[in-house]
Design a protein around this nucleic acid. Structure first.
Lengths: 222, 222
DNA sequence: TCTGATTAGAAACAATTGTTTGAACGCTAC
DNA sequence: GTAGCGTTCAAACAATTGTTTCTAATCAGA
């Protein structure tokens, strides 16, 4: 599919930035091709459609992440010889895998923003694509988390994992805006690693929170 | 501006649903007017532009919310006679105020989805509008939280509040997708109120988490 | 019932969208 | 060199977008 790397790469580099800044529907192919100084037809020629371009942008981040995360989990399982891996180590490993990807690719901010868009933006095809393509590594991870937290009911663990996913994606994808506010209010410049440091105890405490009181009799509306 | 309530209301009712389902850019005025069985020109006649329509949709939720939240905080402060209000009560009050709005208006799902879109969707005008229009009540809230958590450094509290904001908005705005997964995996249907019940102990635990270990000497990259 | 302002409606507007076309270019292999 | 291939390019495509215009209908107050 991709022969002449310059055009394809320039399209992807430009597209990921514009998508992250403005969303998918708000970014036209002409925006991308003009900023990338590439002919308009090049996108449809190399990628086939705008949808496929969006998926390609994601794949360029998620493919290396999946590889890294799988091998990191391999090492972790080997080190514990089939025993239960503590929750802290699992979370630590995931965080490290996420942080390593943009070190070789581009900005972590873009990566996180794209993840946020994948959830919030309607774009049914994207969610389906990500689910099909990268669902397995998450299944593996959640299974390990299950063994690390046997006291949690399955549903409760599911929701808490997604709560924490929301925390991380929301924070890191809106980082620029939040950082501006934080600097203005506290004069303190926060790095991504500083934020991850702050996130760690919060996420652990959230996962270990006491169980909610059961609902009374389920009287419901709305 | 609005005389004949039927048309204006039908537009707003339809628009909020479509916006929540598909986002702003993905929802055309023709989608709205045809589903609302209203003439296309009615939107521009009654609201002036699509942007103004979007803001009107938000105002219909945020105006009553702001009123309710302010009076709820008034009562809370009166009840504590100038003393410190415990964190749990502050969070509880905010949750109740959020939940009460759609009871008189429409669905909480729509409300949350709209909030999520306001953050994730680029739509600079929207964030500015919300900030200007409804920023004061949040300033009041965070000041009360500050008094309730004197042991937290200011920066730490700032970040933890935004972590939790991310958790709630991310979860409730992506509710449909998550609900599909949860139902498929656990057969269990979750209501919004059920989710709020699950969120409560998690948020409290996160806010009360131990402080992160200070960074060592700031060796840093990326 | 006539008058005057407000709302509804059909049609057209210009602009922008993703996509397709067909000719021109640049290259390697014969 | 030239045939064949992959790539670039300008142009056009049809469809859809938000907005405007102008006419018809509606309804209140005299």
């Amino acid at each position: 599919m991709a022969q002449h790397p310059d055009t394809v790469t320039r399209i992807l580099d430009t597209a990921e930035v514009l998508f992250a800044e403005r969303g998918f529907a708000e970014t036209s192919l002409r925006n991308i091709t003009s900023k990338a100084r590439v002919n308009l037809a090049a996108v449809n020629y190399h990628f086939g459609s705008k949808k496929s371009l969006i998926q390609a942008v994601f794949a360029r981040y998620l493919d290396p992440f999946t590889v890294r995360f799988h091998t990191a989990l391999d090492e972790l399982e080997a080190r514990h010889e089939g025993g239960v891996i503590p929750l802290e180590e699992l979370l630590e490993t995931m965080a490290r895998s996420v942080l390593e990807v943009p070190a070789e690719r581009h900005s972590l901010k873009v990566f996180m923003r794209l993840l946020g868009l994948a959830y919030s933006q309607a774009q049914g095809h994207l969610r389906r694509y990500i689910q099909e393509q990268y669902g397995s590594v998450f299944t593996r991870f959640t299974e390990l988390v299950r063994r690390a937290t046997p006291e949690l009911p399955d549903a409760e663990r599911f929701w808490r994992l997604h709560f924490m996913l929301g925390t991380v994606i929301f924070t890191l994808s809106g980082l620029d805006a939040l950082r501006d506010i934080a600097e203005k209010d506290y004069g303190e410049h926060v790095s991504v690693r500083d934020l991850v440091r702050r996130l760690r105890p919060v996420v652990v405490a959230a996962m270990n929170a006491p169980l909610p009181e059961p609902l009374p009799a389920q009287r419901e509306a709305g």
